[in-house]
């Protein structure tokens, strides 16, 4: 079974590596990462302060915006079981979930490789200008990026699996999900919080910061990069709410894991039921 999943993964990786989409994504991501790293350097250059933390934080912003979008678009376009190829593929005497798992893993490898390439280029540029610094901060950004890739590929798979032959619909839905995850959810949380009394409001916001995978990723990455005081007094409230630094890390990890496992499970179920 593992061999089979791996075969599907290799196959998907091959297709992805050769696709113009991924090549463009790799180039654009590297370009943006380079730009962010460069402007971070220019900003801090005059003072020699916050060199790497500020660059890493800017990279986090980029990752939070671009990575979910790429994973959702790429995933929903690729994983939507279109009539024809998919029919043939899923007609094999192999459980459908295994094929899906293989394909998702292949896509993940392709996107992860493109992201690593981008971070690597940006990292080389930063080192060239300001010397080696903050490797652990840099790795935190990379980890965030890989985690969000997994989360939103799983969500894309869940969206696409139920829509055989309706790629456009899967794509539209994944764009909605992206918009909700990146902006709308936070706006709603802030709106709700602004109407509550301070105790309830801060519980709503702290829960929201851990529930939404994009927020959980941001919270975790900032605390990893800037230290536990990254959000000032709000950090202290969060640490108290969660029960300490390790608890925050555990909750962030749990949130990201759940957002990967649950949609993946939903995708497998939906694909199993779909009439191809």
């Amino acid at each position: 079974m593992m061999g089979l999943i791996w075969l599907c993964a290799r196959h998907e990786l091959l297709l992805a590596a050769r696709s113009r989409w991924l090549q463009w994504f790799a180039v654009i991501f590297a370009g943006l990462a380079l730009l962010v790293a460069g402007s971070g350097y220019v900003l801090s250059g005059g003072y020699g302060l916050q060199d790497f933390a500020r660059t890493a934080v800017s990279l986090v912003q980029l990752v939070l915006l671009i990575v979910p979008l790429a994973a959702l678009v790429f995933g929903s376009l690729t994983l939507s079981p279109d009539r024809g190829a998919a029919e043939l593929l899923y007609a094999q005497p192999v459980p459908r979930w295994a094929i899906l798992a293989g394909r998702v893993i292949g896509l993940f490898l392709a996107l992860a490789a493109a992201e690593l390439l981008g971070f690597g280029v940006a990292g080389l540029a930063v080192q060239y200008y300001s010397g080696p610094s903050g490797a652990s901060q840099f790795l935190a950004v990379v980890a965030l990026s890989l985690a969000l890739t997994a989360v939103f590929l799983a969500i894309a798979a869940a969206l696409a699996s139920g829509e055989p032959g309706r790629r456009a619909r899967a794509l539209a839905m994944s764009l909605v999900v992206w918009f909700v995850a990146v902006i709308l959810f936070d706006l709603a949380a802030l709106g709700v919080a602004s109407m509550l009394r301070s105790g309830a409001a801060s519980r709503v916001l702290m829960t929201a910061a851990l529930v939404n995978p994009v927020d959980a990723g941001r919270t975790g990455a900032y605390m990893a990069i800037e230290g536990t005081s990254a959000f000032g007094a709000a950090s202290l409230a969060l640490l108290r709410f969660a029960g300490g630094e390790r608890a925050v890390a555990a909750l962030v990890t749990a949130s990201l894991l759940l957002w990967t496992i649950v949609p993946a499970w939903v995708a497998a179920r939906r694909l199993g039921r779909t009439d191809l």
Binding site: L14, A17, L22, A26, G120, S133, A135, F138
Partner: peptide, 27 residues
């Protein structure tokens, strides 16, 4: 910082390897 300054280069190589090797699969 000094000991781990290889990370960016490692990332570039790993990313490039996966994409190139994946694209040239015997499959």
């Amino acid at each position: 910082a000094r000991t781990t300054s290889l990370w960016p280069a490692v990332m570039v190589m790993a990313g490039a390897f996966v994409l190139i090797a994946g694209g040239r699969s015997p499959l």
